[in-house]
Write a protein that binds this DNA or RNA. Sequence first.
DNA 1: AACAGTTTCAACCGCTTTATC
DNA 2: AGATAAAGCGGTTGAAACTGT
Length: 237
Amino acid sequence: MDTNCGPLVKTQAKMQYAENEMLGLRKGPWTLDEDTILLNYITTHGEGHWNSLARSAGLRRSGKSCRLRWLNYLRPDVRRGNITLQEQILILDLHSRWGNRWSKIAQHLPGRTDNEIKNYWRTRVIKQAKQLRCDVNSKEFRDTLRYVWMPRLLERIQPASQILQPQIKLDPGPTQIQGFHGLDSVTPAGSFSDSSSVELHSDCSGSGLDPWEEGNGGGEWLESLWNELEIKYSSLP
DNA sequence: AACAGTTTCAACCGCTTTATC
DNA sequence: AGATAAAGCGGTTGAAACTGT
């Protein structure tokens, strides 16, 4: 991120901080009471204009803090719980296309917040990269994600998917993943869809390590992966 | 049971972008 | 056109929860 900013902006930030300090605004974890107040207020008056909302609701919180609490926690459509296999595939794929554009990625995972996806990426994917001694931004790691881990995830959800989509076949190895051609037809900058014949030489591959071995809410996502992916991808730019 | 080390994730911070006056 | 406010984004932090010894 470009960290250059003018002295005016810095001054504004400092003034905002000083103002918050003077107003004695609360920080840290939200209490049940605060949640209730915020929820009730938004239910009645709607969201937006967060600074004035915070004041009107009688919350000793910054508008920013209220907005974040609402978006990441209190919103009724926020989905909680384990990231499903389908969601994992989506995250991996969309991240390969867009990088750390968390909010953009989150738009394609209904009910998931950018914060949650970002946390998932940092705690699971980056952790795996470290264990494999890979740079998470390296081509090797990205190819491993796409050509080793994503097919594995697909294999896992395939039995359920086959019930509805028996024509789907998984093509193992470092080749195109069937079902993702639609994605690859869109080639944004930074995508690596041009590596369809890539060979994996990195230590990342064939390690036997499977980052998704542990519980993932299996069984609750028996709807068709492909139907879901089609819906998601059809809305991509 | 107690402690240390690790992981997770809610919340914050600094900054940019967008909207409004 | 410029100033200001509000909204939004991505990176980071720290406390709670979890795990291992």
